[in-house]
């Protein structure tokens, strides 16, 4: 960004010190260049059909960051064009990358036939759409497989083997694959059902009495800005750690969470698009191959928990998964 800004400044200064003629020449040259390049783009589109549309989340820094990464990932001949909501309905072809669940919903409502690659969506959100429209809808999953989160907890607390889970009646199915997978890793989990907000803490206290740590899934009915502080403090007062649900919660005070790094997600998006261009259909929604671990070292220090390095934790998790086969909850 800094370098390109510098060039623009330089270009302006060159134009600025000339008289009217050079200025006119500059404008002319720029106009010619832009017309030429526009024509080239148009020719490329027609000859290769390599246009990818981008429906952003509305969070400008996030969208720009993703666009930058995607442009670096996509083949040079492939164009990435940012589109607005108004333009959605008029698109007749070309894959659309949507960012976040809201953008996906907007795109889907505006154009039900569009092939959409959803980024930054959870498995629970996108899998229904993908099953109904195989090949047309896919996603690079943003949430972390719960077995990976569980093993992240075990990598930090190697002695842990019992995991406490909080769920509502609506979210209980989130955890079912995990409960089936855990015995293969010598672990077990129990779900404590939170019937209403009023009994969240009393249920949590019982859950903490059971588990070696609390595993939080992206279940906004339980883990949300209003509840998270109380949950974390209650757990820490009982000397129990909380793993997950996302990187953001680690900043907020959760001890650790695995997360899918953006470059990995973008790389997978590039691979999905290549498949789409070659076959006309997307692969199924999938998790990135590589995960990293975010830790809150200050929380660990406060709890007297010796923390392996982030890389070490990720390696331990990968090793465990490799030993037992990547039996994630996909």
């Amino acid at each position: 960004m800094e370098r390109s800004t510098g060039k623009a400044d330089q270009k302006r200064s060159i134009c600025g010190i000339r008289s009217l003629f050079p200025k006119t020449l500059c404008i002319l040259l720029l106009t010619v260049f832009s017309v030429f390049s526009g024509a080239q783009e148009s020719q490329g589109q027609e000859s290769q059909g390599r246009v990818v549309y981008f429906a952003g989340s509305g969070n400008a820094p996030l969208d720009q960051h993703l666009i930058q990464l995607l442009r670096g990932e996509l083949a040079p001949a492939t164009s990435l064009i940012e589109i607005t909501d108004d333009q959605l309905a008029t698109l007749d072809s070309g894959p659309i990358i949507s960012v976040g669940p809201a953008a996906f919903s907007r795109v889907r409502q505006a154009n039900r036939s569009a092939p959409i690659l959803a980024m930054l969506v959870d498995k629970s959100f996108i899998s229904g759409f993908a099953e109904r429209s195989p090949g047309q809808i896919t996603g690079v999953l943003y949430n972390v497989p719960l077995i990976r989160q569980a093993l992240t907890g075990k990598a930090i607390l190697p002695q842990a083997n019992k995991i406490a889970l909080l769920a509502t009646a609506d979210s209980v199915e989130l955890y079912e694959p995990l409960i089936d997978e855990l015995p293969a890793y010598g672990m077990s989990a129990r779900i404590f059902l939170v019937e209403s907000n009023d009994n969240l803490i009393s249920t949590l206290v019982r859950a903490l009495g059971y588990g070696d740590f609390l595993l939080a899934a992206p279940d906004s009915a339980i883990y949300n800005p209003r509840t998270i502080k109380h949950i974390l403090l209650t757990a820490y007062r009982r000397n129990q750690i909380v793993i997950g649900p996302t990187q953001a919660y680690v900043k907020a005070g959760s001890l650790a969470s695995s997360y899918a790094p953006f470059p990995e997600m973008v790389e997978m998006a590039g691979s999905f698009l290549s498949t789409f261009f070659e076959t006309g259909a997307y692969p199924e929604p999938s998790y990135p191959e590589e995960f990293r671990v975010e830790v809150n070292a200050q929380v660990a220090r406060s709890l007297n928990i010796p923390l392996p390095s982030r890389e070490d934790i990720a390696t331990r998790v990968d090793r465990q998964l490799a030993i037992n086969g990547e039996a994630s909850d996909e």
Binding site: S57, G100, P101, A102, S220, N224, P225, R226, K251, F262
Partner: peptide, 24 residues
Amino acid sequence: FGISLALSALLPATALGQTDTPDF
């Protein structure tokens, strides 16, 4: 950006006001 995203994704889903965001 991950934090920003988590916030933008989380808050509408839980129908919570912006006043809660400093908690994050």
